[in-house]
Amino acid sequence: MINILGSLFILVGALFCFLGALGLMRMPDVYNRIQTGTKAVTLGVLFTLLGVGFLHPDWWAKLIAIGGFLLMTNPVGSSVIARALYKAGVQPWRAEGDR
């Protein structure tokens, strides 16, 4: 039972990763790609970690270490890329008819 629950969490995590990658493909400009990429994939990793925690409860300490590290660094990485683009003068995409 607990194995099925853990596997389901992993599957949900994989689906969020897929969603992030899909957003990467669909979004019209680089800022929006960063947005969908970071958010969905971060939650995807967290769900995967949770699922693996269910499958192997004795690994919890290292899983928390990985999760905490990703939560701290992943947004920083995205912000640094966005900042570099902004400083380099890349303007955000605007919808047609919106100014």
Binding site: T38, K39, L71, P75, S79
Partner: peptide
């Protein structure tokens, strides 16, 4: 800045 990046529709640039 981290929190804002991971919450609905916002991304901290600078």
């Amino acid at each position: 800045a981290n929190s804002i990046t991971l919450t609905p529709g916002t991304l901290t640039i600078d």
